[in-house]
Design a protein around this nucleic acid. Structure first.
Length: 477
RNA sequence: GCCCCCAUCGUCUAGCGGCCUAGGACACCACCCUCUCAAGGUGGCGGCACGGGUUCGAAUCCCGUUGGGGGUGCCA
């Protein structure tokens, strides 16, 4: 999620300022990156709609260039060979962190260049460390403002491992120069890498890019967002039916705000308003409830036909077939269904769930709804359902005339319309809540409506004879 | 341990010395609308971490305390 936010801000900056968004996969760590992980990253970025102008480049492919940069620094005396084993240094570090900081350098100085050359020629393994110069390293961070580090606090970082592979900090510097990167926007966890990279750029004679650091995203417990917090990867939200535009909108609002009360923003709206100056330095908590609310807002304004494919994806195969079938015989039917449901759903997944009663004749009746609207007065419910069936059967099947018919019936029976509507809703959807009852009837059509009422009458009869016996237990649909 | 950063309602945030008896949004509660559920409308609950300064005047500036985060790798 943090990576997605970083990608988004980079993209927003590039689009806002007419820049070039370059995608580079930093896979310098041999063991810890796989094709699957790369695909997941690419999929996520694509899903969000963050189109890149260059790349994807893979850092691993530049290893030769990285290596020659490291060697150059070594020959120029800006780096040195380190024959100290990683284990030995680690032991010192555990005991005395201050001593460990300059230990490799001191050992190298003690060794002397002649001896160092000899041991290297002898095939002894060594790492190459950058010789951090004295002084101070400062930069004007695009988010943090002016930042400075005393070089004496920066260790002589390894730039080439003893196995000859480059490390991240060297690779980044080498690549940024090679790709003419002008702006580096990344997580706050990289601030302490920045002086190292600036120093390397200067040693290599590169133009130093602008840096900006983004605050972290935390879980609800205030700890860094991780797997423990449930859904933390984009794919999981995609699966639930969160819209990319909602995710982008939400992520943009984490650590940034337009400075106005506007919250529901489109992607072009975000591009138009985005600026680094308004990025906060404070980490923020990922609140998935607000994400879902935002998604609901975007859902509500999205045309139903654009939602159709997404809803279809959320449906089980059987229901999807049914939906396709209905739509073929009655073009636009699915769009009308989605139009009815989208305003009461927060995710596309919820639309799918709510669509079920419309796509499957075998309803599953919600026990609470049955108890409330049928069970309390089975005899009355039967009478009402029968009356409704008779009154509605000959009616012209439009919302208007169905409403006239039903309200007329209620009046002639001397009951409130709700007395008819509630049992009817259970009969038609199995639920206590649904879209407007007349819209439901029109969408279902006369045949399905009437047969569902018939079936309901049979079920309620069962309730009448034995109120303790639920229809589900008796094997009724 | 050492270095760096941060600190406004539970959460996301507006605020950049007087416009603030601190504004908006999510969540929560109530009411309205209403055939239910949503949506929408109205209202409510709720916050400047603490202590010192500076100033005629501090949420806003300075210092300290506390709390949180990041870094401290032959990880990225």
């Amino acid at each position: 999620m943090g990576g997605a936010r970083t990608a988004l801000f980079n993209w927003l900056l590039a689009r806002r300022e007419g820049g070039t968004f370059v995608l580079r996969i930093e896979d310098t760590d041999r063991e810890r990156s796989s094709d699957d992980m790369v695909e997941a990253i690419l999929d996520g970025i694509r899903w969000l709609g963050l189109d890149w102008d260059e790349g994807p480049y893979f850092q691993g492919e530049g290893a030769e260039r990285h290596r020659s940069d490291a060697l150059r620094l070594l020959f120029e005396g800006k780096a040195f060979r380190d024959f100290v084993s990683a284990d030995e240094l680690a032991a010192i570090r555990a005991e005395d962190p201050d001593r460990a900081l300059r230990y490799p350098r001191e050992r190298a100085e003690l060794l002397g260049s002649t001896e160092s050359d000899a041991r290297a020629a002898n095939g002894e393994p060594f790492a190459i460390r950058f010789l951090v110069p004295p002084g101070e390293t400062a930069w004007e961070d695009r988010v943090y403002g002016s930042v400075r580090f005393r070089n004496e606090e920066i260790e002589d970082l390894v730039i080439l491992r003893s196995d000859g592979t480059p490390t991240y900090n060297l690779a980044v510097v080498s690549d940024d120069a090679a790709m003419q990167i002008t702006h580096v926007l990344r997580g706050e966890d990289h601030v302490s890498n920045t002086p190292k990279q600036i120093l390397l750029h200067e040693a290599l004679g590169n133009q130093v890019p602008d840096f900006g650091h983004l605050p972290m995203i935390l879980g609800p417990d205030g700890k860094r967002l991780s797997k423990r917090h449930g859904a933390t990867a984009l794919g999981e939200y995609q699966g639930k039916g969160i819209l990319p535009v909602a995710m982008v909108n939400f992520l943009a609002l984490l650590g940034w705000s337009p400075g106005t009360d506007e919250e529901v923003l489109t992607v072009p709206g975000l591009v138009e308003r985005f600026s680094l100056e308004r990025v906060l330095r404070k980490s923020s908590v990922f609140d998935s409830t607000k994400l879902e609310w935002l998604n609901g807002r975007h859902l509500a304004v999205m045309p139903a036909d654009e939602l159709m494919l997404l809803v279809m994806e959320q449906l089980p195969a059987e229901l999807r077939d049914e939906a396709e079938h209905r739509d073929r015989s009655d073009p636009g039917w699915v769009v009308r269904l989605i139009d009815l449901l989208k305003v009461r759903a927060r995710t596309v997944g919820e639309i799918g769930e709510q669509a079920t009663p419309f796509l499957r004749d075998a309803l599953s009746y919600d026990p609470a709804a049955v108890a409330k609207h049928w069970g309390k007065d089975p005899t009355g419910a039967i009478a009402h359902l029968r009356a409704l069936r008779e009154a509605l059967a000959p009616t012209e099947w439009t919302e208007e005339s169905l409403e006239t018919g039903l309200r007329g019936l209620a009046e002639s029976l001397g009951v409130g319309a709700g007395k008819l509507i509630h049992p009817l809703r259970v009969a038609l959807t199995g639920q206590a809540a649904s879209p407007g009852i007349f819209e439901v009837m029109v969408l279902l059509g006369a045949d399905a409506t009437l047969s569902r009422i018939d079936l309901a009458i049979q079920i309620v009869k069962g309730l009448e004879t034995n109120v303790l016996d639920t229809p589900l237990q008796r094997g009724l649909p």
